[in-house]
C-alpha cells in the first residue's frame, strides 16, 4: 500500500500488461457484438472490427419490422414494476422483523429465510399450473407474480434495519407519527444504501430473467427481451447480424446505467453479496 511513492517496478508493468490483456479478452465478445450489428450480411464474416461501409440498417429493421421495441418495453415495465414492489414489501417485512417484538417473529423469519433454499426451478411447474388455473398464462401479471417479494430481500433489509437505532423510531413515536409513516419517512431513508443494492440486484435479475418468462409467455406481444432473442433464429428466422443487433440492444441499457452509476453498482453488489 505504498504505491504512491514507489517507483514503477518492472513487476508492476508485467502485472498491468497481463491484467490489460485479460480486460481486453473480457470485452471482446461485447465489442464484436456491437461491431457485427453495424455490418451488412456479407461482411460479418470478416474479422475487421469496423466495416468499410458501416450501416444502421440492422437497427432500423429491428425496430421497424420485428417486435423488438415491444419486447424492450415489456422488459423495462416488468423489471421496474417488480423492483418497486420488491423494494416496498421486502423492506416492510425486513423492518417489521427487525424492529417489532411480537410472538411468532422468529418463526416467520425462519420460514421466509427457508424459501431461499428452494430453487426457482422447483416452483416453476406449480406456478405454471397456478397461472393456468387463474388464467394468468401469457399475461403481464403472470410474468410478474412470482417475483414481487423475495426472501433474499427480506433477509438483506432485516440485517440493515437492525443497524438503525431504536431511538430514532421512538423519538418519532413520541412526536405522534403513525407507524406506517415512521417506516416510510424515518426508517427507509436510513437504509438507502441497502435499498439501492436491492434495487440493482432486482432490476438486473428481472431484466435478464429467462426461464420463467420463457415458460409463461407464448405470444410475441408478451415476450420479454431474452425470450424474444431466443425466438429470433427460430420463429422469426433471423441472420447472425440481426441476432447480434438484438443482443446489442438488450445489453445497452445495463451498460448505460453502469457508466453513470458505476460506483453505486459495484458498492451495491458488494453490499448485497456479502450481507446476503
Amino acid at each position: 500500500m505504498t504505491d504512491n511513492k514507489a517507483p514503477i517496478s518492472p513487476k508492476k508493468i508485467i502485472i498491468w500488461t497481463f491484467l490489460f490483456i485479460g480486460a481486453v479478452i473480457m470485452m471482446t465478445p461485447i465489442i464484436f457484438m456491437f461491431s457485427a450489428s453495424f455490418k451488412y450480411n456479407d461482411q460479418i464474416y470478416e474479422l475487421a472490427l469496423i466495416s468499410s461501409e458501416p450501416t444502421l440498417s440492422n437497427y432500423i429493421y429491428l425496430f421497424e419490422n420485428t417486435e423488438f421495441l415491444r419486447w424492450f418495453l415489456n422488459s423495462i415495465s416488468v423489471a421496474l414494476a417488480t423492483t418497486i414492489s420488491v423494494l416496498f414489501f421486502d423492506s416492510l417485512v425486513g423492518y417489521t422483523l427487525a424492529k417489532f417484538k411480537f410472538k411468532g417473529r422468529k418463526i416467520v423469519f425462519v420460514l421466509i429465510l427457508s424459501t431461499l433454499m428452494i430453487p426457482t426451478e422447483m416452483l416453476v411447474i406449480p406456478w405454471y399450473i397456478l397461472a393456468r388455473d387463474l388464467g394468468l398464462l401469457d399475461s403481464y401479471i403472470g410474468l410478474i407474480f412470482p417475483g414481487i417479494m423475495t426472501g433474499f430481500g427480506v433477509f438483506l433489509m432485516k440485517q440493515f434495519f437492525e443497524g438503525v437505532p431504536d431511538d430514532y423510531l421512538d423519538a418519532a413515536r413520541i412526536d405522534g407519527v403513525g407507524e406506517f409513516r415512521i417506516f416510510t419517512d424515518v426508517a427507509m431513508p436510513l437504509v438507502v444504501p441497502a435499498l439501492s443494492a436491492l434495487a440493482i440486484f432486482t432490476f438486473l435479475g428481472n431484466w435478464t430473467a429467462f426461464l420463467w418468462p420463457l415458460i409463461v409467455t407464448s405470444s410475441a406481444e408478451i415476450y420479454t427481451v431474452p425470450v424474444g432473442l431466443a425466438s429470433f433464429s427460430g420463429e422469426f428466422q433471423s441472420e447472425w447480424e440481426m441476432i447480434m443487433t438484438g443482443a446489442a440492444v438488450a445489453t445497452l441499457p445495463t451498460l448505460i446505467i453502469f457508466l453513470f452509476l458505476q460506483r453505486y453498482i459495484i458498492r451495491g453488489v458488494i453490499l448485497g453479496g456479502l450481507k446476503g
Partner: peptide
C-alpha cells in the same frame, strides 16, 4: 477502467451473450 472491463460482462443478459458466443 480495468475493474470496469472485468465487471461489465456480469451486467449482460445471458441469453444475448449466449448467442454471441454461439456465433464465435
Amino acid at each position: 477502467f480495468l475493474r470496469a472491463c472485468y465487471f461489465i460482462p456480469f451486467l449482460t443478459t445471458a441469453v444475448a451473450m449466449a448467442w454471441v458466443w454461439r456465433w464465435f
